[in-house]
Design a protein around this nucleic acid. Structure first.
Lengths: 172, 172
DNA sequence: TTGATATAGTTAGCTAACTAACTATTAAGC
DNA sequence: GCTTAATAGTTAGTTAGCTAACTATATCAA
């Protein structure tokens, strides 16, 4: 994702809007700030996870497994839920298996299938990471009250609904 | 950035909060939705730019150059403002120069330095891309009124301020 | 003035993502 | 039942980012 260190000032936005009249200045500003804060959050999350020897992809796989009652899933399902390709999931599972955090179990009923199981070591890793992650996240969001959080989620839902328009709208 | 296709339901969040008492459920929910919408926006932006033969990194370089009065900057400054390493900027400029969108101009005063100039073709590329991008963005944000946009920016500023806590807070 | 240090840009090699193609297995249609 | 198509997982090769190291140039201090 784009890093966007140097967001445009109001003057710059106006200059661009003068050349491109379709520009919606507050829309652009909100959009860029959203991307900027999200990428900063993502980088902070990476830093937190890396102190525990994890990256976002592997961490998310462990969480997805813990969500399941039997701490078990399949590579395809995990790939879909994590939003990565099956090929990428193979790589993530290779790393997690090497570290002993998950186990590949062959399925006798459908021999194409694997079961991926969260090991005790994997659960222990989550028990180390999650309190640290949650405490940091709580501190980060401490300045945003419940009302603002609800408004944020509502606005994000509206933007999400507008994404269809972003992708399909023909050129002005 | 993490894709997060399958965000946790309220039940899942409560289950995790029961095991990890430090969890702040609405903070987690807001955080994950923010990352999710931002990555979807980033992907939509990529799709828009790729129709014009651009990617986020190169597109941003062109914009940074257009912002300058003389349409000129240096690789180091561009790298800093775009939030990428100087090495990455070298690669971005290689591609842009190959496509004739920017020109490398050697500096006679300081022979370590290069000037990077937006060419006429580069300006033309922006004149093609920006109206399309701005029109899509306007449509995407149409469902978010001015008040919500202001609140969004204010909340994002508060989260941004909290990022320091995310990075420095010691483990609970 | 000249030797150490800092700066600008590039190159080399690494990583984690991707797509496309491949193997093995199962399901479905005639 | 056999052939075709679909599915599960992996492998191979590409990409855009990174860090570290390198070359060339400029600056500073003894």
């Amino acid at each position: 994702m784009l890093q966007l260190r140097d967001l445009p000032s109001v003057e710059v936005l106006k200059k661009f809007a003068a050349r491109y009249p379709v520009a919606d200045v507050t829309a652009i500003s909100s959009f860029l700030h959203l991307l900027r804060v999200a990428s900063d959050l993502s980088i902070a999350l990476d830093a937190c996870l890396s102190r525990h020897g994890l990256l976002q992809g592997r961490w998310w796989v462990l969480i997805l497994l813990m969500r399941e009652g039997n701490k078990t899933s399949t590579p395809s399902l995990l790939a879909e839920k994590a939003g990565v390709s099956r090929a990428t999931m193979t790589g993530l599972l290779d790393g997690l298996e090497r570290d002993g955090l998950v186990a590949r179990v062959f399925d006798d009923e459908d021999r194409r299938r694997l079961s991926i199981r969260l090991t005790d070591a994997g659960q222990q890793k989550l028990d180390d990471v999650m309190p640290d992650y949650y405490a940091r996240l709580r501190a980060c969001m401490a300045g945003v009250d419940e009302n603002a959080r609800q408004q944020l989620e509502a606005t994000l839902m509206n933007i999400n609904a507008g994404l269809v328009a972003f992708n399909t709208e023909v050129r002005s």
